[in-house]
Design a protein around this nucleic acid. Sequence first.
DNA 1: CGTTACCTTGATATCGTTCAAGTACCGTGG
DNA 2: CCACGGTACTTGAACGATATCAAGGTAACG
Lengths: 264, 264
Amino acid sequence: MNRPLAYTPSTPLGRKLCSYMVLTDEERNFLSELERNVTKLPARADLLQQGERYGTVRVMRDGWAIRHKALPDGRRQVVNFVLPGDIIGFYCNLFETADHGVTTLTSVEVASFAPDRIFELFKRFPRLAAALAWSGAKEEAIIAERLLSVGRRTALERTAHLIVELLKRLSLVGLADGGRFILPVTQEILADALGLSIVHINRTLRRLRDIGLIEVAGQQITVNDDKQLSSVGQFDELYLHLIRAPKRLEHALDQAPDRSRAMP
Amino acid sequence: MNRPLAYTPSTPLGRKLCSYMVLTDEERNFLSELERNVTKLPARADLLQQGERYGTVRVMRDGWAIRHKALPDGRRQVVNFVLPGDIIGFYCNLFETADHGVTTLTSVEVASFAPDRIFELFKRFPRLAAALAWSGAKEEAIIAERLLSVGRRTALERTAHLIVELLKRLSLVGLADGGRFILPVTQEILADALGLSIVHINRTLRRLRDIGLIEVAGQQITVNDDKQLSSVGQFDELYLHLIRAPKRLEHALDQAPDRSRAMP
DNA sequence: CGTTACCTTGATATCGTTCAAGTACCGTGG
DNA sequence: CCACGGTACTTGAACGATATCAAGGTAACG
């Protein structure tokens, strides 16, 4: 492991952005300052309630959460899963009011900072701003793919697709090992993520188990045959945009970086 | 009409951003430069094909288009409608490859510019960068709401919801008048946007007509009772984030704007 | 005036929901 | 140690919303 300690940020956000581009000292310092204020919360806590005014920006350091939207009568859609390193409503914080809620699934560790710092970031660190824009675009791509799933894939396909997606995303942050990962999620939440009923999710998981594609032991999911599971889910990882450092990002920002005004 | 000509950009993008904040001369100039290179295209032209490498960033000046994703077997989901003033894959252009296609529905006028200019914009005009981030977040919010529709609303609710959404969005850019607007869309596209079959969209529209909530004459839709249609669709305009200038955006960016380095 | 693209409607099929009941697993308190 | 209540999972049976199949209609267009 190549790990020059001074240059590997210990914060999930820093680590995430590091995978996009080489950070300067100033940038790293700024990021770790952002993540200094850390809070712990239990499972099933609301980090944000639908309709609430935005307060602070949060970065998930450890644990899982969901972003979800609800209808007045209680029907609910899980929009996305928030995994370690993800930012909670970065751009949304530019809005006045939250159009979705965020709830923890496990006990979590989150860092919080004031929305003002976003503007500071835009003014002082254009490269970070662009990198965060990139990461925001990735989130949008994931949601669009989920829309495709819910709109056009069958229950079996959707479920297979989500399992593969989570496996890939967790692998990226070192939380899945050999097709095995912990899914701290009830079947109700799975149902709300996939636009299905609890009963049908249950039957669908059972089918996937019966075919032998996955194994379930408590919260632990084991993907036995990820090729076949991917093909059942018509999974094409294009949308995850995994390619590490988008060359054009790095390239364009590095020439004439105009560092003169950083940290005045 | 209050229209000090020198200060009202003639470009859709400029006009859009103007509604978020007061632009400086430099910012306005930069934007109109971006929109200088205009192309016209017929209906049913692909502005972008799924799997293609990104080339240019485009701004829709006039006309409609759709962003859509397809499965290998041809099933298709329309992710969003691109209306005048919308940017086509702004952040997506930070990716290497397109995970969705963009196809015109009408003849259109689009402005194109090189992706490099995005970085130039981030470096030289942090206020514009933040405003564009804001507008990107609005797009994500719209997609998330569509996910809620497709996942959790019934066919009737979904359809009502989409019609109200389009009415609101078109009103914003002056393209709807008294509940009446042109919807240049086949029922097939509506079906693909709402995750339904063509046949069922047809029946659902008929039901809305029978109840007397809408009238359809060719491509012209008239919403007779938008209150009731909104309530059928459980429409809550929160997600459109219509509030004109987010105060925190304007405020935070205006103090210490650090204009020294604009237009060096 | 035939072809094509789109809309419309009826009949039938199916996927997924709802209702219902039972099970397994926990933590808690007697 | 056991009884209890709560939460989540599981499975069967009936139902229903939406899909699919099929056929015909209309308008635009070469």
